[in-house]
Design a protein around this nucleic acid. Structure first.
Length: 288
DNA sequence: CTTCGATCCTGAAGGC
DNA sequence: TGCCTTCAGGATCGAA
């Protein structure tokens, strides 16, 4: 489900409601997701105040007091949302973090609704997600992060950076764009969309992409990701932000999921192919 | 070293 | 209506 824009949308929606509060208690309701859950480490977050919400690649990072960071990954089907503390657990609710209550004037205290406070919960039917705790200071050295490439919305990302990373490599440019060692956060939806915007055929070998086209591709990646964030992410099936609201970018998708529909630019029917087992959508006329 | 395919899991959708 | 197959936004591992 979530690629970079969706994780960013979750982060932005939750940050104002989480930063400054404490995890009052932590409930670990499943033995594991993609990896076993460290019950003691997660429960050890109880009582700590939330300092910041950050993102690295598709990981959401929740920094808490005393130098710890809760790392969450939503996998394919994960949802991270707020719910009233008294609401019964959802199906596949693997983690629940009960939040403390802010001492606000009553007319400002939305948290007072229901009288029981709120909880942050991770629901993930397919259990492809991750949840673990790391010391904040050594986060980047962890095996989940050590190999990751450049952030596409950072200043370090450019056509030149892509071209450099492509040196000595082969294979289709679509697989290259989805390789987290090259650039992070670009998943199956936005890889198709960025290649369409750049006019590059997904099957083109990385060895045959000219310098100017690497620049167009980098610009297309940034434009697609920024627009998707602005539109609240892509809700194809089940993506929602921290408040349970869906996104709108699915309306703006040019090719993804549109096999047989006319290309927005030239009306040629959109085609579907498969790269590394994943569906790829493209216009055979606009993309070369 | 890279690249590809299989794999973890549930649920939605489509064919019959 | 119901049963069966196929496919899905990610990331890792082993094989070649």
């Amino acid at each position: 489900m979530p690629e970079l824009p969706e994780v960013e949308v979750v982060r932005c929606s939750l940050a104002p409601r989480l930063v400054g509060r404490r995890f009052e208690s932590v409930e670990v309701r499943s033995p594991g997701l993609r990896e076993p859950l460290d019950r003691a480490a997660l429960e050890g977050l109880a009582g700590r105040r939330i300092l910041a919400l950050r993102r690295r690649a598709k990981y959401l990072l929740i920094d808490v007091e005393e130098g710890r960071t809760l790392v969450l990954h939503l996998g394919m089907s994960g949802r991270l949302t707020l719910a009233p503390a008294g609401e019964p657990p959802a199906l596949h609710e693997h983690l629940a973090f009960r939040l403390d209550r802010l001492d606000l004037p009553e007319h400002l205290d939305a948290w007072r609704e229901g009288g029981e406070g709120w909880r942050l919960r991770l629901v993930d039917p397919r259990r492809f997600g991750l949840a673990f705790v790391l010391p904040t200071a050594v986060l980047e050295g962890d095996r989940h992060f050590a190999h990751l490439g450049v952030e596409p919305l950072s200043e370090d990302f450019s056509g030149a950076a892509l071209r450099r990373a492509a040196r000595g490599r082969r294979g289709p440019v679509k697989s290259f764009l989805m390789d987290a060692r090259v650039v992070v956060g670009v998943g199956n939806i936005y890889a198709s969309e960025a290649l369409y915007r750049a006019g590059i055929h997904p099957n083109r070998s990385v060895a045959r992409v000219a310098a100017a086209r690497w620049c167009r591709l980098a610009e297309a990646v940034v434009a697609v990701l920024r627009q998707a964030i602005a539109e609240g992410g892509t809700t194809l099936n089940d993506f929602v932000d921290g408040e349970g609201r869906g996104g709108y970018f699915q309306v703006s998708l040019s090719v993804y999921g549109r096999e047989g529909e006319p290309c927005p630019r030239c009306a040629t029917p959109i085609r579907r192919a498969v790269h590394a087992g994943r569906g790829t959508f493209y216009c055979p006329r606009c993309q070369r």
